[in-house]
Design a protein around this nucleic acid. Sequence first.
DNA 1: TTAGGGTTAG
Length: 756
Amino acid sequence: MNKNSSICKMQFSQKNTNTISKIMWGIVLRSRIERTIPFHSFHLRHYSSSHSQLPNYVHANLLKNGTFGELSVTNYVLSLYIKSKDLVCAFQVFDEMLDRDVRSWTMIISGLVQVGSCRMALDMFTDMHKEGIVPNHFTFSSVLKCCSTLNEVRMGKSVHGWIVCNGVFVDTALENSVLDFYVKCGSFDSAKLYFELMTDKDIVSWNIMINAYMQIGDMETALGVFRRLPVKDASSWNTIIRGHLQNDNYGIAMELLYEMVKSGTALSKETFSIAFGLVASLTALDLGMQIHGRLLRSGIHHDGFLRNSLVDFYSKCGEMEKASFVYQGFPKCNASDRCSKNNNKSLPHSFSQSLVTGYVQNGKLQEALKMFTTMVTDRFEVDKFTLTSIVTGCANAGLLELGQLIHAQIVKAGQPFDIFLSSSMIDMYAKCGELDDAWSIFRETKVRNTVLWTSVISGYGLHGRGRDAIQMFNWMLAEGIKPNEISFVGLLTACSHAGLLNEGMHYFMVMKEEFGIKPQVEHFTCMVDLFGRSGRLDGIKDFISKNKISNVASVWRSFLSSCRIHKNIEMAKWVSDKLFELEPPTAGSYILLSNTCASGDKWDDVAQVRGLMKDMGLTKHPGQSWIQLKNQVHSFVMGDRSHPEEAAIYSYLSELIQRLKEIGYSTEANIVMQDVEEEQKELLLAFHSEKLAIAYALMKTSTGSPIRIMKNLRVCTDCHSFMKCTSLLLEREIVVRDLRRFHHFKHGHCSCGDYW
DNA sequence: TTAGGGTTAG
């Protein structure tokens, strides 16, 4: 359950508007490492703590005393640079070498593999071949790793064939590389056969095979092999624990971790990383903190990778203060470092990109944007994980322009979209009202999974395009993609928003019977909503009793909402009694009841409900609307007079309402919660936040351009009618995102068909 | 041979 998924999560202020506009000036994207990318950027990215000044010192001295230039000496300097992962200097040396042997080439290739630049390593391998240098077993080891990383199955097999046919010297390390290649490329049978034929199996060979069984989901055999190992090293433990963690066997993973600690095997960096992943999945804060303590005692807590694991763990447990505290300990660099030639050396760990993600996941978008902005303005590279998180934040807060900017920068950088980024982009465009753009991304994404399809189905649902959502759902099935429970929430919501009762009932049955998905609270609530919107209040009663869900509060809340839509006061009272048996009354429930009574002019009841609310100290969450104009977010609340142009806004609004009345708009005063005089009711209605936002948008935008508004609550009947009339009178398209869905107003009609 | 983080709903 995602507790941060409500559409309107943050309140906008001038402060974060500035943040957003700063971001507009540029985004540094992580680029693919190819030959065209200047080497310094890759140096920046892959610098590791193992770096020291030693290679430069040795290099300088050798140059000074004139011994630099001999092949063996140059190779030695090259090896120092490779060990310290200083590929820039390594390439400088390599390029200047007059003579290069197999060791020179192999070192540069393995250096590239170490920093993850496999494509380039393969290019170097080709160049080496062209120069007539014969590869050795070290070269082949690196090349096979590239093949498995890049999933170059054919090439890997050819390399293996070449090794066999040419009688290359094969040691256990190379055999392990071949074995690992077959495992990583999913050729399990080949791996198994090769393993059986291996003459000298070491612990690495066994670890690779344990990993292979894990990959094919054969946990039992993997565990059996692991148990039979006479000597287990940290990798054996890490592999088996990680495998269980990835297969959601948290209990066994935890038991194995305890066993590893008891066995006395020293916990490696990898073990800690896996352990934090485990406690993060279980949101086991106390246990995680104990492991954190152990890490501090181990003395390896300065590792950047591990810090990010820790940040992630605390974020997943909702402990952002602790996550931020861990981040505070990250090595920092100052501005002069960044400007100097040899700067960039402490950069990669100075920012925790995991922290940005944590902020987004915990609904703290302001903090996330603040950190993101600093990264961008300081020209740090932003990786795809962070970008995906920021796009998700844009989706939740409706920051279309920032989302668009990120999209544009990714395209400009030639960065490929992966399925995570595509899904969040689709979601962002859908939640920001740009369904066509969401569709374009979807169309351009060639490999589609359930989440991607669900994003687009839900997007159509959000805009009331129920039939399109159904069409997409069927298309998804035709492409052989299986829907999950979230896909059905999206589909049923789409049916509900479009009033497609029969279709909704059909898919509810399909979900259970064809896909074996047990309905959850969310699905039941969708169905109750669907019956309610269709006016089938008695149908809801039957549905609740048939499905034995009378103990689910959200179902009764939805029922109460339907009573308000259909102005059924008696039913509303009965439903609210049921609801209050399950959960203490909330302001929201009381407001629903009070509005239902008000809609039937039952003012005594309204007064009683509001009296109860007052006695219990319950206050209504204020309605808030906002618009974005020229990189500025303008926020309005009901009756708010804090805007610098408030006098002009209120005057414009009063004038507009007078003109709207001439074409038939009448204030539906009965929805106001207080039994006040008619004139006063009208006044109150006139000040609803969305009306203020629309008035301001009309004042500030050119004729004919569409207006986009976001609101933190549902749109009230009167404002809905106001927007329909405005769209007709001023020939303006008005797009409103409310708490649940979109309304597109055009020529006096709304896309929701007055059914929301 | 083994390590972290990103997507979809209500």
